[in-house]
C-alpha cells in the first residue's frame, strides 16, 4: 500500500506543458527515489504535490485526495518539504527559521540538535551567512521538527562538498527509519545506498517505476533512462 500516489499529474506553466501524465507511488516505509535527467520534471512533480504550482490529476496521500488543497493544508496533513533551493530565509536567524516551521505543540528540537549540533551553536546566526551544507541542515531540520508522515527532499546534496553529502545521506537514512522519504536525487551512488524503490521521469512522464537497486544494477536500463553509466555515478556516497 502506497502512502502517496500520483496519477496522471499534469502541469502547465506560462503556456508550457511541463508535466504530461506523471505516475508515482511512494512506499509507506523507507526511501523512494525520484530520478531523471535535468529538466525531466522532478522538481515540478514535487512542487505539484505540495500545491506550489497549478496542477491537474489525482494526488492521494494516506487515502485522502489532496489534489485541490492549498500548500499549507498539504503540509498540515503531515508532509515536510525541503525544496531544491533549500528555501532558507536568509535574513532570519537559524532559530527563527526553525521556529517558523513549528507545528506540533512539542517540536522535536532534541532530535534536530542531536543530528545537527552545529545548528544549536549557530542558532542566532542569520541563515544567509551559513554555508550551503549548513543551510541544507536547516532545511532538513525544519522537516524533522514535526511528527511528519512523509518527508520530501528535493536534491538535498546538490552543490555540497563530498564530506557534507555523506553527512546529509546519513541523516536521511536515519530519518527514513522512522518516516518515509521521497528523495529527488542526481547522486546515484547515494540513491543506491539508501533508496528502496524508485521512479524515473523523462520528458514530463513516468518512464519507469521499480526497485532502485535493480535499476541501477542494470547498466543498459540505467543508461537508457538516466543517461549515465552507473559506474560514472558521482562520488560522495561512494567515498565512505
Amino acid at each position: 500500500m502506497s502512502l502517496l500516489t500520483v496519477r496522471d499529474l499534469r502541469v502547465v506553466i506560462d503556456g508550457l506543458h511541463i508535466l504530461h501524465g506523471v505516475e508515482l507511488d511512494v512506499a509507506a516505509t523507507g526511501v523512494t527515489a525520484l530520478l531523471g535527467r535535468n529538466g525531466a520534471g522532478k522538481t515540478t512533480t514535487v512542487k505539484a504535490v505540495m500545491g506550489l504550482v497549478p496542477r491537474t490529476g489525482a494526488i492521494t496521500f494516506d487515502g485522502a485526495d489532496i489534489t485541490g488543497l492549498p500548500t499549507h493544508r498539504v503540509v498540515r496533513r503531515g508532509i515536510g518539504y525541503a525544496p531544491e533551493d533549500r528555501g532558507v530565509f536568509a535574513h532570519l536567524s537559524v532559530a527563527e527559521n526553525l521556529r517558523l516551521a513549528e507545528r506540533d505543540p512539542n517540536p522535536a528540537y532534541d532530535l534536530v540538535f542531536e543530528l545537527f549540533p552545529e545548528l544549536k551553536q549557530r542558532h542566532r546566526q542569520p541563515a544567509g551567512t551559513l554555508s550551503g551544507g549548513q543551510q541544507q541542515m536547516v532545511a532538513i531540520a525544519r522537516t524533522l521538527l514535526n511528527g511528519n508522515r512523509l518527508v520530501i527532499a528535493d536534491e538535498p546534496t546538490k552543490g555540497l562538498a563530498p564530506k557534507i553529502v555523506t553527512e546529509v545521506a546519513d541523516v536521511l537514512a536515519r530519518a527514513a527509519a522512522s518516516v518515509p522519504v521521497l528523495l529527488v536525487e542526481q547522486n546515484l551512488a547515494l540513491v543506491r545506498r539508501i533508496a528502496g524503490r524508485c521512479a524515473v521521469l523523462a520528458d514530463g512522464r513516468t518512464a519507469h517505476q521499480g526497485d532502485a537497486g535493480a535499476l541501477l544494477a542494470d547498466a543498459d536500463a540505467a543508461r537508457r533512462l538516466l543517461g549515465v553509466g552507473t559506474h560514472h555515478a558521482t562520488p560522495g556516497g561512494d567515498s565512505r
Binding site: L52, H72, V75, R76, P83, F89, E96
Partner: peptide
C-alpha cells in the same frame, strides 16, 4: 518577515 523574503516557502511550512 519570512513572507517578504519568500512567500511560497512560508506556505510550504504549513
Amino acid at each position: 518577515r519570512a513572507g517578504v523574503e519568500d512567500r511560497a516557502m512560508v506556505t510550504a511550512l504549513g
